[in-house]
């Protein structure tokens, strides 16, 4: 303490000097407008700079919170994006001519839209398709399933929320078909080769099926209404016994790329339609 007082006493002129200089500068800035404004703007500049530095520091320490927020938002946006792009896919789905025709023919039927959740497409094997609708949505075995390119297959087994479908590309699949415009019918079968191709056997030789003729459901089974597109004739060949033709058919659906399908769920309607169709064909004769 004594040292401090000695120090103050010894260098009192320095303190006086500092005080008087401060007074001088205050007077200078106070009573001279030019110097005052220069001082003021310089001081403002310094203050702004310090404030800026402070703000930057503060921002830096807030980065962690912001990072968490951004991550959360990012996840939310990604989910939203996935949902929206799915919705967009459904909305902008370009319906083909066949698809329109199939849906026109199926007006009046209750259709249950479903998505394919599992699709086994292997050549030479027994393929199955699993869709995400089951008994809870009203799906029963033996219901027909159609897709954008026409007939897909028949419901075979159902659980509460999922169903197993036997597609056309299953060796045991057999669907009653006919050539459009003609009443000759046969059964569409798959030989286990290409999943894009099947064949119709036992078509009489006098049936004038040509390359490009449309193969559709005949309506003789209770599963599909008549006239649903199945595929087009690719080649007309002799069957093994030589008595009839075998029609090689290019299927309307690409089973390797199947996504949205509809299950035809109106009970008995197809039976009734089939009866009416048969009645019509009887009267034509």
């Amino acid at each position: 303490m004594q040292n401090l007082l000695d120090f103050l006493r010894r260098y009192n002129y320095l303190f006086i000097f500092v005080v008087l200089e401060v007074v001088s500068f205050v007077l200078l800035f106070r009573f001279n407008s030019y110097q005052g404004s220069v001082w003021l703007s310089a001081a403002n500049g310094v203050t702004a700079h310090i404030n800026n530095l402070y703000k930057q520091g503060e921002d830096y320490f807030r980065l962690k919170t912001i990072n968490t927020q951004l991550t959360e938002e990012n996840i939310r946006l990604q989910q939203e994006n996935a949902i929206l792009s799915e919705a967009l896919l459904t909305v902008t789905h370009d319906s083909t001519y066949t698809e329109k025709r199939v849906s026109e023919q199926l007006t009046g039927y209750t259709l249950i839209p479903a998505k394919v959740v599992s699709n086994k497409v292997v050549r030479g094997a027994n393929n199955y398709i699993v869709i995400n609708r089951g008994t809870a949505e009203g799906i029963r075995p033996e219901m027909g399933v159609v897709g954008g390119g026409g007939v897909v297959g028949i419901v075979y087994l159902t659980s509460k929320h999922h169903s197993l479908i036997i597609p056309l590309t299953h060796v045991k699949s057999s669907i009653s078909c006919r050539v459009r415009g003609k009443n000759y019918f046969g059964y569409l079968q798959w030989d286990g080769r290409s999943t894009r191709k099947a064949h119709v056997d036992d078509v009489p030789r006098y049936a004038k099926a040509r390359r490009g003729s449309v193969i559709e459901t005949s309506g003789y089974s209770a599963v599909f209404p008549p006239g649903i597109f199945v595929g087009r004739v690719d080649k007309v060949v002799n069957s093994k016994d030589g008595q009839s033709y075998r029609l090689n058919v290019v299927l309307g659906n690409d089973f390797g790329n199947l996504r949205d399908v509809n299950v035809i769920a109106t009970p008995y309607k197809n039976e009734i339609d089939a009866l009416m169709f048969q009645a019509d064909s009887l009267s034509e004769r």
Binding site: L20, S24, F25, V26, L27, L28, F29, F31, N32
Partner: peptide, 9 residues
């Protein structure tokens, strides 16, 4: 005001 005072100090 102030200029001469500061320098004279």
């Amino acid at each position: 005001i102030g200029a001469a005072a500061a320098s004279m100090t």
